[in-house]
Design a protein around this nucleic acid. Structure first.
Lengths: 311, 311
DNA sequence: AATAATCATCAATTGAATTCATAAAATTAC
DNA sequence: GTAATTTTATGAATTCAATTGATGATTATT
């Protein structure tokens, strides 16, 4: 055997995640596979590459040497990959994006910036999906990608998973519900719920949390902007359900508090809905990859999603 | 699948050899394997990488892009490999070499130069094996590597193949034997044969060519230096048997002529005899690899040897 | 035109990488 | 300090991909 790029990817991911399990997840492999792979690599190199008995993992000099190699090689490989994708046609295209929740700006804008560097010829646009039905627009060809956490199976549309996040209830810092470690549906009975202004059927809180339990909050008001929502929450005008990552910066600033939704912790998945026939376009694949990568870099508390959504 | 270093090696070798078969040989793979591998790689890249219908192979822009990547990546990988080998012990050692034929200088000195760059801590020496028995000296530990084309199975000694060469008979430019396309044993009956000054039993000409046919040349004289040998040959004082690569520069200068030994073309193999227990030392493995690489680069008409010699 | 060489392709095989199940070790919580 | 949880290691079975061997097509060479 010989050193391969795969090994460098593993090492690098090991560095980024600080654990075998973490790296395995992000690489879509089992922990066992990585353990075997690293054992083999260490045999090949003739020495240990990292110390297991320390958290986060510490690399030996040999490990560091390989990481240095990875830092040189991996970007070069990626750049070559992009050049190849361009050379083989499909270099220019259109990527009109739609988001349905404002907090997506947080990861989407940086992702678009990174992407634009590598694919300058792709025409990009970003619109909010509040005023129209995004999926029909996608099928019509008005737009090319819809960010959604609600994958309704529709012929001609595939849902590519981006990442998974935990669903949290944002609460004022002195809110009585903070007593509870976990929020169950009945806790919202006597609360005012603040949501984005989309139809009730497309709001996960109702569809997956309240409705199954037959609970209806006493109040409901809508708000377009996440920042505005949280201002309302902070001033005790209501509570709202948001993904953990959208909340992260507000929690860090101690602006509001939050509790996970239960009974068992509730995970949502964000998908990119695209037309099936565009699934294999190189500029499309690259965008999805970039989006995932940038998200994992910028957001705390999100997870890899194993397999693709509904086809 | 993804691009791997293996692919880059293949591409690079393809460039160096100019053909699939050639690259396959040097990589110790079948032509079929390379064909499949390249087909897969092209599918991955989305476009052809080289044009088959031209000799030597011509690379497409995509192929050239990957070659550029290879030129960046492969040296970096090799350097990292050396650093790792050093880190995992065995960084310094001793490498006393013995050669039994002067012409080996041609490839051995450049190989040593390349090697010394990467392994400055390894103590090197080179002696001629005319005045002593090299293999016993190897077993005693007086020397560490003997270059030999005569692999006698001896416990504790392994023969690592370096390359294969064609055995030629050097002849004066107007020699009558030039009429024949191939030299058979009986042709030497009435010739004076010039050899290196080693025991008759260790000379391939006798052992593998003349003795089996029961032929004895009319004359026999020895000579230490290849250049001197060829001077004698040129002045019609005799003929001598040499590997094609040792002859190459003299043939190019039109100083002497040559014919292959037959009936079927005779190939010899050059081995590095080393002690079995040192076979896996990293500085030893690296030396063998360097020697092969430099030889293939500098010598014309040599071949890869599939498998290792006697253990 | 005939011969030799190179390359592509198929089916069969080999071999390596991955998974699954489980044990061992280490970390965290109590 | 013990229990519980998480992380890593390992062995055997499986899966998947790469390699081979045989053969046919194509392209150079004579």
């Amino acid at each position: 055997m010989n050193i391969e790029i795969k090994h460098l990817r593993t090492l690098k991911m090991l560095q980024q995640t600080g654990s075998l399990v973490g790296a395995a997840q992000r690489l879509h492999l089992t922990q066992s596979a990585l353990s075997h792979q690293l054992k083999g690599l260490e045999a090949l190199c003739g020495s240990a590459l990292f110390l297991r008995k320390s958290r986060p993992l510490a690399f030996t000099p040999a490990g560091k040497r390989l990481l240095a190699l990875a830092d040189l090689v991996l970007p070069a490989v990626q750049a070559a990959g992009r050049d190849l994708a361009r050379l083989s046609g499909g270099q220019s295209g259109r990527l009109f994006l739609v988001i349905e929740c404002h907090s997506c700006f947080e990861w989407l804008l940086p992702a678009m910036d990174v992407y634009r560097e590598a694919w300058p010829e792709v025409e990009m646009d970003l619109t909010l999906g509040f005023s129209f039905e995004p999926i029909p627009a996608l099928l019509r060809g008005d737009v090319d990608l819809v960010v959604s956490s609600d994958p309704v199976p529709i012929p001609g549309v595939v849902y590519e998973p981006l990442f998974a996040f935990q669903v949290m209830l944002a609460l004022a810092k002195d809110h009585p519900l903070l007593e509870k470690p976990l929020i169950v549906p009945s806790d919202l009975q006597d609360q005012t719920l603040i949501t984005y202004p989309v139809e009730r059927e497309r709001l996960d809180v109702f569809k997956n949390f309240l409705d199954p339990a037959g609970i209806n909050p006493i109040g409901h008001r809508t708000c377009e902007l996440t920042a505005m929502m949280l201002q309302l929450v902070a001033s005790r005008r209501g509570v709202c359900v948001l993904p953990n990552w959208a909340l992260a910066e507000y929690l860090a600033r101690d602006y509001v508090a939050a509790r996970p939704l239960g009974p068992e912790p509730m995970w949502g998945t964000l998908y990119a809905a695209i037309r099936e026939d565009e699934r294999h376009l190189s500029y499309m694949k690259e965008f999805l990859e970039t989006a995932r990568e940038v998200s994992f870099k910028n957001l705390k508390g999100i997870r890899v999603v194993k397999d693709s959504g509904f086809d």
